[in-house]
């Protein structure tokens, strides 16, 4: 299919070259009379649905949430009366050690899990672009889990890491002590990371293998002529050439993991001992379990502002590729 599309583009380009008059230089558009006015009308028509969608589905809810952070409820529950409270919600959250713990935990989780996932994905990608017997098969094996939605991965590991589950079965058979995993404050967050990584690593590997295949072969040949070993080739050719795909994948991974919710809600409910409470779950619990929607919205606002900063970086990385 893609070859077809390629072919199409080439054909079209050829036609374009022969068909266009010499005067039709790429930038100037001769004989386009009404010009800008018409362009603007067409733009409004073509961009209308997308703009309506972003206003109704992103900006309005965001503005509503931002507005509601300035109010507090008199009484308890979702239907209680509201009164203006200024920045009281922010003050309350930012002086709440539980919330600060959540914020810090979310950031720390991302500072660890994203580089680790990308490093592993990169290591596996480099291994699986080598000419090895069965390479395609091993790639598919690593790739299979990322077709499993997060809820499926949560279910699988939720059962596998039970006290009486097969992972502890293997540990016991090896003469090791069985581990508590999701039920231990020390291990629960790492177990959540495993749930996300089982499906995440193969997913990012897909992009990195694409990038690795695009690295100019001649660079490797030059490196090998210069007598560079494998490690030297990796650090001086592969990594610099992969800088942009790696950065992009790292940012995209961060975007995904910052709102990680499913395994927390399904497997640990933020516990034990708050050890797996992260921002997204915190906002959910404040809104629905504790019936504190204004504080929930405040948490959402903080989360969204962090997300916006990360996405802005992602957008710059994309734009730079032009």
């Amino acid at each position: 299919m893609s070859a077809e599309a390629q072919e199409g583009t080439r054909r079209a380009a050829a036609q374009g070259r022969s068909g266009a008059s010499p005067a039709a230089a790429p930038s100037s558009r001769p004989g386009r009379r009404p010009g800008r006015g018409r362009d603007l009308r067409t733009a409004v028509l073509f961009l209308g649905p997308a703009l309506a969608a972003i206003v109704l589905l992103r900006l309005v809810p965001f503005a509503g949430a931002a507005w509601s952070t300035l109010f507090e409820r008199v009484g308890v529950g979702l239907l209680a009366e509201q009164r203006f409270a200024g920045f009281a919600n922010y003050q309350q959250l930012l002086s709440d050690p539980l919330f600060l713990g959540t914020l810090w935990r979310t950031i720390a989780f991302n500072l660890v899990i994203n580089p680790v996932q990308i490093a592993l994905a990169m290591a596996i990608s480099v291994l699986l672009v080598q000419r090895l017997p069965g390479r395609g098969l091993w790639r598919v094996f690593v790739f299979v889990p990322c077709t499993v939605p997060l809820v499926g991965s949560s279910v699988a590991w939720g059962v596998a890491l039970r006290q009486d589950g097969p992972v502890n079965g293997v540990l016991t058979a090896l003469g090791l002590a069985p581990q508590p995993f999701f039920t231990s404050p020390q291990q629960a967050l790492a177990s959540i990371a495993l749930v996300a990584s089982w499906i995440g690593i193969g997913y990012w590997m897909l992009f990195l293998i694409g990038g690795l295949n695009d690295v100019n072969r001649e660079l490797y040949e030059a490196a090998s002529l210069d007598g560079a070993g494998r490690w030297r080739t990796f650090t001086s050719v592969t990594v610099p050439m992969m800088k942009r795909p790696l950065l992009f994948v790292l940012v995209a991974d961060t975007v995904a993991n910052f709102v990680l919710f499913v395994p927390v809600q399904l497997l640990t409910n933020g516990g034990p001992d708050q050890s797996t409470t992260m921002l997204m779950f915190d906002a959910y619990r404040r809104t629905y379990t504790y019936s504190q929607p204004n504080l929930g919205a405040t948490a959402i606002l903080i989360l969204t502002l962090i997300m916006l900063a990360i996405v802005a970086v992602q957008f710059r990385l994309l734009k730079e590729e032009d």
């Binding site: 309005v60 809810p61 959910y284 959402i300 969204t304 916006l308 802005a312």
Partner: peptide
């Protein structure tokens, strides 16, 4: 034009989970 482009891409790239809770109320 570039401003509209940035608004659409960045706005839609923020995962909608981030504002799902206020949006659900709406």
């Amino acid at each position: 034009r570039e401003g509209v482009f940035a608004l659409l891409v960045v706005g839609f790239m923020v995962p909608f989970e981030a504002i799902a809770i206020p949006m659900a109320q709406l």
